[in-house]
Design a protein around this nucleic acid. Structure first.
Length: 329
DNA sequence: ATGATTTGACCGAA
DNA sequence: TTCGGTCAAATCAT
């Protein structure tokens, strides 16, 4: 971690302190004015902007693929064109181009990026590796020169929402513990399997605990720090606007989406706020390189009110530290 | 009954 | 013609 990293942590800590202060103020409405709230929010926003600048300086443009290192799995990401010499080399378009609506069977112009996931043999994970999206297998093919067949998956919501995202899963010849997952197209459905749980989050976690797929879900879906910062900042901005117009319920919109906002699976989100909170509310943004992040207990426990903002901030700090400190698995 | 997976056939690109 | 990607009927799982 260099100077800028220290600066970032410093900024984030400062922001966390401000959020806590804001929380206190909100708890004691009589002892603090609306102006105080707004001032705090402005400060927080400004810290976010600083933090974003630092992050962008360190890591390149938003959405740039990054390495994720975790217990049991190592994930490397690369953008198209992937892997010269691999079976993926048939086309080299790397541009994020318009979707081809001509129903061409080969969607050459879709954005494409590859993850390599190393699975700890002890885990004994079998495919398909769940990455938080709902995939439906539509084919499997033996690939010339490859020991293992390649699996073809498309978004489950393709028919419902016209989501054109697909992925291919190829087990590595050299190392059977490595899975190479090539994603094509971006999700337009915003419907992940890990969207807001219909049951309580804790129930949901417990019910899925100890499954290898969930291990991967959690580990594979750590959010891009940039996205978290952007999303949180977006939330703050929206909230600021609300404060301008209505002064009765500060931070009312900082709630995590409740079941009233998000319906059960296969239904569409309607609230614009949810767009801003896509990754925070466990809904992967369609354009993100990284699907979404694992459900942190601290976030889960605070669903439903502004205290979650503190948890989010703590998450950002925590994730940044993890991201920075762990170099290799 | 419904949805997911399997698998051979088909199609387009090279 | 070969090969990778997709389709769709058959099969399986819930």
């Amino acid at each position: 971690m260099g100077d800028s990293s220290n600066n970032l942590v410093h900024e984030l800590l400062q922001g966390l302190e401000l959020v806590r202060q804001l929380q206190k103020n909100l708890h004691m409405p009589c002892s603090s004015s609306q102006e105080t709230h707004e001032l705090l929010i402005q400060k927080i926003i400004s810290i976010f902007e600083k933090a974003l600048q630092i992050v962008n300086g360190n890591r390149g443009p938003l959405g740039e693929p990054s390495s994720q290192h975790s217990i049991g799995v190592t994930i490397r990401m690369s953008e198209s064109p992937p892997l010269s010499g691999s079976p993926h080399s048939e086309d080299s378009d790397r541009d994020l181009m318009e979707h081809d609506h001509n129903a061409s069977r080969k969607r050459k112009s879709l954005p494409r990026w590859t993850k390599q996931i190393r699975v700890n043999p002890g885990i004994g994970v079998e495919l398909p590796l769940d990455d938080g999206y709902n995939w439906r297998k539509y084919g499997q093919k033996g690939i010339l020169g490859a020991v293992y067949p390649r699996g073809y998956y498309r978004c489950t919501h393709r028919n419902v929402h016209g989501c054109l995202a697909t992925k291919q899963v190829q087990r590595s010849d050299e190392d059977p513990n490595v899975f190479e997952i090539t994603y094509k197209g971006k999700h337009t459905c915003t419907m992940a399997s890990n969207t807001i749980p219909t049951s309580t989050p804790n129930e949901n976690q417990e019910s899925n605990l100890n499954t290898n797929q969930n291990v991967l879900q959690g580990l594979e879906q750590q959010p891009n720090l940039n996205e978290l910062l952007l999303n949180l900042r977006a939330g703050l901005r929206v909230q600021t606007e609300h404060l301008d117009s209505s002064h009765d319920q500060p931070f009312s919109s900082f709630h995590f989406p409740s079941s009233s906002n998000i319906k059960t699976e296969n239904q569409i989100l309607t609230s614009p706020m949810l767009e801003n909170f896509s990754s925070l509310s466990f809904i992967p943004p369609a354009t993100s390189e990284i699907s979404h992040f694992s459900v942190s207990p601290s976030v889960v426990n605070n669903i439903g009110g502004y205290p979650s903002m503190i948890s989010i901030w703590e998450n950002i700090l925590f994730m940044y530290e993890v991201d920075s400190c762990i170099t290799h698995f």
